[in-house]
């Protein structure tokens, strides 16, 4: 069967790649919990991932909150249901858009940077040099990045939630003529702790995905500058797709019926 062979080959290749990725992720996680630890490297990565992503995540969140308020007004005003706008904004932002948009923005910023940095270290033999200096590269390079990603993404998403709601508030009060106190009251009336918590769980998962994919593609890059470029692209594309897929899975887990 000349058609089945290539399909089988692609499928086997996909399985092999998934296996390698799981092995890489598993080994890296085990390095996260076994000494020696590198607290200074973790701190450095936390600043890199958390602090320097604040502007881009903040901007994304405020425009998202604003556009949500505007669009839901167009819809709900037809049924005289304007009071639902605040609830739509806060629920969409905390449950879905905050984590997903922050995740995608950080994937573009951090995933790409990690793949490029570690990929360059691979092709210039710096990773081999680490091993030659009795240092496990997965422990030294990958584990601190994963730890920082898991810790910082929830914080970023919390900030995105607040700024996103604030964006909706701005439009609600200054453009749609809501009473400020009333808008805030409506916002918190509908908000349940689980809405925020599910978003933060997603964020931690996305932090893991972004850092693992960035490190994995960098770690296995070859073929000089071109290989590093390919690793960077692959890291961003694969983590973005995984973020959207896991977003669905976690939503189904928390709120699915």
């Amino acid at each position: 069967m000349p058609i089945l062979a290539p399909i089988g080959r692609v499928f086997l290749g996909f399985l092999a790649m998934t296996g390698r990725l799981c092995q890489f992720a598993g080994a890296s996680v085990s390095h996260c919990v076994r000494p020696p630890f590198f607290p200074r490297l973790v701190t450095h990565q936390m600043i890199e991932i958390g602090y320097y992503s604040l502007p881009v995540v903040g901007l994304t969140a405020i425009f998202t909150g604003m556009v949500l308020a505007l669009q839901s007004y167009t819809g709900f005003s037809r049924f005289n249901a304007e009071s639902a706008i605040a609830a739509v904004v806060v629920l969409s932002v905390t449950r879905e858009l905050g984590p997903v948009l922050a995740g995608l923005m950080v994937a573009g910023r951090i995933g790409a940077a990690m793949a490029a940095e570690i990929g360059t270290m691979r092709v210039t033999e710096q990773i081999d040099a680490l091993t030659a200096l009795s240092t496990n590269p997965q422990k030294y390079l990958v584990a601190p990045r994963i730890l920082a990603g898991i810790m910082m993404l929830p914080l970023l998403v919390l900030v995105a939630d607040i700024i996103g709601v604030f964006g909706g508030f701005l439009i609600g009060v200054y453009k749609l003529d809501f009473n400020a106190v009333n808008y805030l009251k409506l916002t918190f009336e509908f908000l349940e702790p689980l809405d925020v918590i599910s978003g933060l769980v997603k964020a931690a998962m996305f932090g893991f995905i972004i850092t693992v994919m960035g490190c994995y593609h960098g770690y296995h890059s070859d073929g000089g500058a071109q290989g590093v470029g390919k690793a960077t692209t692959n890291a961003v594309v694969s983590s973005s797709v995984l973020i959207l897929a896991f977003n669905y899975l976690i939503t189904a887990l928390f709120f699915g019926v």
Partner: peptide, 10 residues
């Protein structure tokens, strides 16, 4: 080990 491109940590 001295690597071909020195492989210093950037």
């Amino acid at each position: 080990m001295l690597f071909q491109g020195a492989a210093l940590f950037d």
